[in-house]
Design a protein around this nucleic acid. Sequence first.
DNA 1: GCCGATTTGTGAAATAATTTTCAATAATAA
DNA 2: TTATTATTGAAAATTATTTCACAAATCGGC
Lengths: 212, 212
Amino acid sequence: MAETKIPKATAKRLPIYYRYLNILHDSDKNRVSSTELSEAVKVDSATIRRDFSYFGALGKRGYGYDVDSLLKFFKKILNQDKLTNAALIGVGNLGNALLNFNFHQNSNVRISAAFDVRPDLANTVQSGVPIYPMAELRKQLEDQQIKIVILTVPESVAQNVTDDAVAGGVQGILNFTPLRISVPSNVRVQNVDLTNELQTLIYFLDHYNEED
Amino acid sequence: MAETKIPKATAKRLPIYYRYLNILHDSDKNRVSSTELSEAVKVDSATIRRDFSYFGALGKRGYGYDVDSLLKFFKKILNQDKLTNAALIGVGNLGNALLNFNFHQNSNVRISAAFDVRPDLANTVQSGVPIYPMAELRKQLEDQQIKIVILTVPESVAQNVTDDAVAGGVQGILNFTPLRISVPSNVRVQNVDLTNELQTLIYFLDHYNEED
DNA sequence: GCCGATTTGTGAAATAATTTTCAATAATAA
DNA sequence: TTATTATTGAAAATTATTTCACAAATCGGC
């Protein structure tokens, strides 16, 4: 089901490339070199060429890459040619911000359902997204065939909620809680830990003066 | 200024360890093995031992690690024994959520100043944090000696604001915009790109069925 | 004090990711 | 047409990170 396993490091860069290709496209550029891309996305040009080459020969020597065909290619690869529905669990502080954030503007991901324990939120609509009571989590995920959830619940309930979501058939979790949740091996977790990021930043500042 | 250069990959895991050590400490455990830690933080135990070993022999063979002394050690390393002030630039959707988020609960980072272009926000206090007009950015950063900023402005102004912040002496930037900002080599940028994370997750789901 | 069970710390091996280098090719200028 | 310049793709070299596997140290019970 894949183009012979792309390195993880490469996979993580694909959305970055995709995004910049869109910008080029919108400004009517029709060719781009790895050097030029490198400037914009802050990735070494050799790394970019290497990344691209995993997918075959996408460019032309002496010319560069054709923006439109590269864009079309990555759109396909990243599944951005169809809409992906995601659910948001936990409409608190951060959850609310993400509801407003509207991923849809930049990508073909849409939060199509949200869940919260608070009774006053259940069965309302926030930022155009229907909020369901937590008790319906599993059922709604199943019914709506949602494969991706964004987890913005308090840490204390994160594992329970995760188990429910997994039971509902979820395959990918964007985990905003600091808890390292446990999931079966066929479920993928992407952690976004804000406190962590800040602490790492501070560590680097204190211990890696100048450069990397 | 460092303990002979810790690998970057290790540095990124330090806050994860630190966090779990706090949990152990709070539940009055006084020893922990790399295997036990491994379960909780989802990092291979050999990797944990290797990570720790960069700082010297922190454990005891046949025993494990002493929670309190390890905690004390990491607290020092991560600068969590002093309060670090940060500024938040852009009090919009996400910015507001982060103001409420209160990093201080889990770490010794505090947002002590925020900035926004909107005149009705300037000179108010939101979630206990004073909001300054954008024009004062450089001056306030200098006066308050703030070295870390959280960037939650629209992409279109991200580079300009960054340049201002750098002029104000900032050394670390937690960048929530999708733009890969340009900074001098002595300034460190940590990118948190939510759309990216979601797209990467989708890519993994579609192309890496079962396991990594 | 001795013995068996644990568990670290670390060389060495394996794996992953980046960077260098350069031949091949395309575009452009002369 | 031909020479010059730009640029990719890929092999090789390098660097970074993880994992294996085991000797050495420590603990706890007897």
